[in-house]
Amino acid sequence: MVKGTRFVEIRDAGDPVALAKRYSDEGADELVFLDITASDERRKTIRELVRGVASVIDIPFTVGGGVSTMEDARNILLSGADKVGINTGAINNPPIITEMMGLFGRQCVVVAIDAKRNYGEPADGGGGPPVMLEDDSGRRFWFEVHTYGGKKGTGVDAIRWARRAQGLGAGEILLTSMDRDGTKDGYDHELTRRVVDAVSIPVIASGGCGHPGDMADVFGATGVDAALAASIFHYQEYGVSGVKRILRDRGVPVRL
């Protein structure tokens, strides 16, 4: 019974330490912090934030955003985080995944993938030609990995990259659909299922959750291990425990 792990993403929403405490008390199963700051004193800020969070919660948490060196990863883990999320840093320098696994263990390494449907010509940004798919209206597309907060297309196929990241040492894939992110239209089932089927490590679905039912849907349709949501929690439309009760009623095993 692995399913039912739920994540809350905290992205520039108020005081992160207070928010983390609230989510933890309300019954969130895990927290993910992304893009927490871009200031010059990043490292020190991150260290203080991670320490602050670690001292008020007792559930696992992942910290990512701008990780590109082993020193960045160590800074996050030694401050008290359980896992490090790496995205652009891993695309630019894939062997860092293996280095991180070697030093910290596979369970600490979360490779974050921001994927977006590309209806253009298949590119080969490394790792072979992309997996070509068809949408409901028969148009051909592939899932392209984007970096730098979604700003840059890489030509890398997301499904292939997920499999490669696993081979290099990733312990978990945090998979965000850029097409769905912020839409509240539900998770991208096609993307999620393709990646879940391509790897044997846990996958966390992200992007598009507008209602607790969307979480139940993505669990049922894709076999994904966890689902992440942000805005439905931030704006208190549903408390964490309210969401989990709805999931339980839909037959998803959850911790309540």
């Binding site: 019974m1 692995v2 399913k3 792990t5 369970q107 911790r255």
Partner: peptide, 10 residues
């Protein structure tokens, strides 16, 4: 199994 096993169990 998915290894490492990570998650909540009863």
């Amino acid at each position: 199994m998915k290894v490492p096993h990570m998650g909540w169990n009863s």
